[in-house]
């Protein structure tokens, strides 16, 4: 059976005054029903652009999806026109963003905004939509949902707005739920609430979740499969235990070592990844991580490695075996 979502060789570029920004460079992944996929990377690594491309939300121009396919249930989403895409977006695949305030219309009530997608996508009547919206607000844990239905976005706190966004995303019971750093702007206790909520809803509704974040901690407790992204490439892919227990790409390894942990004290200095992430305007030939990599060998400067399996379901894009420090 074909997977629910299959992204093949997706390449997105931005044509700016300063040059071509290579935001996403030929990434491929699949999402099965009920999967939870975590995409980890630093800001500017292309992780948001990669899912915005899937959703057909890249502004064109300056953006352009230069190559690739996005097969949803076998249908290439990139070939659809705006109208057809709107039918998929929100109904089949839903997304929440980092900043709930910019995605909510400040002059419409929260309830109205949730109800709208029910009316548009499911053809519900006004009354039915209202009843359903209240139910959704209740489901995402908004107290006194019936009263809060007619509140405006500014009357909600940050955490509640994000809950409302999730309610909106879940309105049509999508098959895939994409979360683009939805908790970055929130406090840890609220973040815990939201993650808990998404986990519960995922198990209840059986939807697939793609969660994008720079926080390694969130993914550890949430995802089953993890993709590590750097400079628009996937550089490591594996199960959550592979990535955290046995990271094999120097970047993943260094990233994990550079973050302190709340559950233990280390006396040593943090490990440091030197330098800066590369400029996506002009990537040098070879591995994009090479200039910052402590394992670099001659080959790294010449050719960019592709993802290759090193274990069951565990792939890395690296010329070096970090366990021995020698070329593979």
């Amino acid at each position: 059976m074909a997977p629910l979502l299959e992204v093949q060789d997706l390449t997105t570029r931005f044509y700016t005054l300063d040059g071509i920004v290579h935001a996403v460079n030929g990434i491929s992944y699949t999402v099965e029903e009920g999967d939870t996929l975590g995409i980890v990377g630093e800001s500017g690594c292309g992780k948001s652009v990669s899912v915005l491309s899937v959703m057909g939300l890249i502004p064109e121009p300056p953006g352009k999806i230069a190559a690739g396919q996005v097969l949803y249930k076998g249908q290439d989403l990139l070939q659809l026109d705006q109208k057809q895409m709107e039918r998929i977006r929100g109904k089949e695949i839903a997304m929440v963003f980092q900043d709930p305030m910019t995605s909510l219309n400040p002059v419409l009530t929260i309830g109205h905004q949730i109800g709208e997608s029910l009316i548009v996508h499911l053809g519900m009547g006004q009354k039915e939509a209202r009843r359903q919206s209240v139910e959704l607000l209740d489901m995402v844990g908004i107290p006194q949902a019936a009263d809060r239905y007619s509140d405006y976005p500014h009357q909600f706190s940050g955490g509640m707005r994000q809950r409302a966004m999730i309610a909106m995303a879940l309105a049509c019971s999508p098959n895939i739920f994409i979360a683009d750093e939805p908790t970055t702007a929130l406090d840890v206790t609220i973040q815990a609430q939201i993650i808990d909520l998404v986990k519960t809803l995922r198990d209840q509704l059986g939807m697939a979740v793609i969660w994008i974040t720079h926080d390694l901690g969130i993914i550890a407790g949430l995802a089953e499969k993890v993709l590590v992204m750097y400079a628009g490439f996937f550089i490591e892919r594996g199960s959550v235990d592979d990535i955290y227990g046995d990271p094999r790409h120097p970047y993943t390894l260094a990233l994990l070592k550079s973050v302190p942990r709340v559950d233990r004290t280390s006396k040593e200095r943090l490990a440091v990844i030197s330098g800066l992430p590369p400029d996506l305007l002009g990537l040098p030939p070879g591995c994009p991580f090479a200039p910052r990599c402590t394992y670099m060998v001659e080959q790294c400067r010449k050719e960019n490695p592709c993802l290759e399996p090193i274990g069951f379901g565990h792939e890395i894009a690296c010329w070096v075996d970090v366990t021995t420090g020698r070329e593979r």
Binding site: V188, T189, Q191, A192, I195, D215, L216, G217, I218, I219, A220, G221, V240, D241, Y244, G245, L256, V259, R261, V262, D263
Partner: peptide, 16 residues
């Protein structure tokens, strides 16, 4: 206590 427990740990074994 709540604050401490809400901070995710980058280790799936501990997280479980």
């Amino acid at each position: 206590q709540a604050l401490m427990s809400a901070v995710p740990v980058p280790d799936p074994v501990v997280e479980r």
